[in-house]
Design a protein around this nucleic acid. Structure first.
Length: 416
RNA sequence: GUGGUUGUAGCUCAGUUGGUUAGAGCGCCUGGUUGUGGCCCAGGAGGUCGGGGGUUCGAAUCCCCUCAUCCACCCCA
């Protein structure tokens, strides 16, 4: 086995795979631009408190998945496990706290110290959007519609959209009380994780996948019943807009999600062709607290996992993007021609042609093989004769046809 | 964090109950064509069999440890 493997849960992405990644990125820019979103790039690491406060101390992500380290000044820093907290931190420098709206999207690597599995890396990539500063059901619905629009553009069919409401912070207390009371009586029949959750975060019990727990959850009180009239209305309106936007969704009352900042609308997109890790995107409305800020930043947004989008595209057989092949391979026979090709290559490149040259005076056969290997569209052959005549042999690698042309007019012959 | 899987050439993998110089396909290099690629043919390079220890006359093969991989749980994107 090769010794040069990257750290666990990370991977090298080679040039051959890049077109697939670029499509994800370019499509994101294209679609999100249509909704008025612009790209925001935040640092790959933040002060640890940004995530602790932002995501919530009780969350799984903060408790056991963060890459935290001390910098040279002895400050605690953390590699971003998600980008919403960082984006909010950045936007604090704008006027979002005064009810002014900001629309941003981001793309980049995220880091979580989990055990790798299919569709789960320690360094993975997300694209996400945030609509920040205002609250209105129309914004939530538009956000979800935009996500579905993005997936559609990528050729991802058969995705399942689940939505739910988490109510407001105030709504949640009575509901949480009721849940605690209900589960407290049955907790000894439930899994150890849920026993922990009972006091720390009852909500997470709702989406536990253990059979024993699911049985108990089935009989649990309907939480939205404890929510305020306003919250229920908010959710109803959001769903109404989704209907108007012709977005297909399913209301999933058990959908809770793992980050503490969510309020009102939450949603998740899964795909049946994925298996173990079947969530390709998720998000919702949030109230996110940052260090030294008494008031939370409000907004709605989502994040999608690029690796998982790629997996779905592959499973669905979405063809790779095709690009026009224009590579010109310069064959030089003899030292003189090889040297002369350096300058010719430079000239062609400045005229916009991708050029690969052979830098050693190898045999014709070897050089033609090389041209074939890099899948050259044309090869340009020069030896002593051509140099003397100030010509070059231009060969079309697809048809095999070739002609001798004046070097000065080579570009004219390359252009159709 | 728990459980399982796999680790042999650049890549994908064979390697029979432990037995001589460890194989194939693809790829790569050279030649068959004095200056013409892909197809074909011939030849060639390339491996401390993941690492360490043990059992044995002898280990890729059996045992232990370790590292890594992939997968499931968990969590999420």
């Amino acid at each position: 086995m090769a010794k040069s493997i990257p750290p666990p849960g990370t991977s090298d992405i080679f040039p051959e795979e890049m077109p697939l990644w670029h499509r994800l990125e370019e499509t994101a820019d294209k679609v999100f631009s249509l909704y008025g979103y612009g790209e925001l790039r935040t640092p790959i690491f933040e002060y640890t408190e940004v995530f602790q406060r932002g995501l919530g101390d009780e969350t799984e992500v903060v408790q056991k998945e963060m890459y935290t380290f001390e910098d040279r000044g002895g400050r605690s820093m953390t590699l971003r496990p998600e980008n919403t907290a960082g984006v909010m931190r950045a936007l604090l420098n704008t006027d979002v706290m005064n009810g002014n709206e900001k629309r941003v999207y981001y793309i980049g690597p995220m880091f979580r110290g989990e055990r790798p599995a299919a569709g789960r890396k320690r360094q993975f990539h997300q694209v996400g959007v945030e609509n920040v500063g205002r609250i209105a059901p129309g914004l939530d619905a538009e956000n979800i519609a935009m996500l579905m629009h993005y997936l559609e553009e990528l050729g991802i069919k058969g995705a399942q959209l689940l939505v739910n409401t988490r109510g407001t912070r105030e709504d949640r207390e009575p509901a949480a009380e009721a849940l605690r009371a209900y589960f407290a009586e049955r907790i000894d029949r439930m899994c150890p994780d849920c026993r922990e959750r009972l006091d720390k975060n009852v909500w997470r019990i709702l989406d536990c996948k253990q059979d024993a727990c699911i049985n108990e959850v089935d009989g649990a009180p309907e939480v939205t019943g404890f929510f305020s009239e306003e919250s229920r209305e908010y959710f109803k309106k959001t769903c109404g807009y989704l209907d108007e936007l012709k977005v297909n969704y399913k209301i999933e009352p058990r959908l809770v999600r793992g980050l503490d900042y969510y309020v009102h609308t939450v949603f998740e997109v899964t795909h049946p062709d994925l298996g173990g890790q079947n969530a390709i995107a998720g998000g919702g409305r949030y109230e996110l607290f940052l260090p030294d800020n008494k008031k939370p930043v409000i907004g709605v947004g989502f994040a999608a996992g690029l690796e998982r989008l790629l997996m779905v595209q592959e499973a669905l057989g979405v063809p790779a993007p095709e690009s026009e092949n224009r590579t010109v391979f310069l064959v030089g026979l003899g030292e003189q021609a090889v040297d002369a090709n350096m300058a010719l290559a430079s000239e062609l490149r400045k005229a916009g042609w991708p050029v690969i040259t052979e830098v050693e005076a190898k045999s014709m056969k070897a050089q033609m093989r090389a041209a074939n290997r890099v899948n050259a569209r044309f090869s340009v052959i020069r030896g002593e004769d051509e140099l003397a005549r100030e010509t070059a042999v231009l060969k079309d690698m697809e048809s095999g046809e070739q002609q001798e042309v004046p070097v000065g007019q080579l570009i004219k012959f390359l252009n159709p």
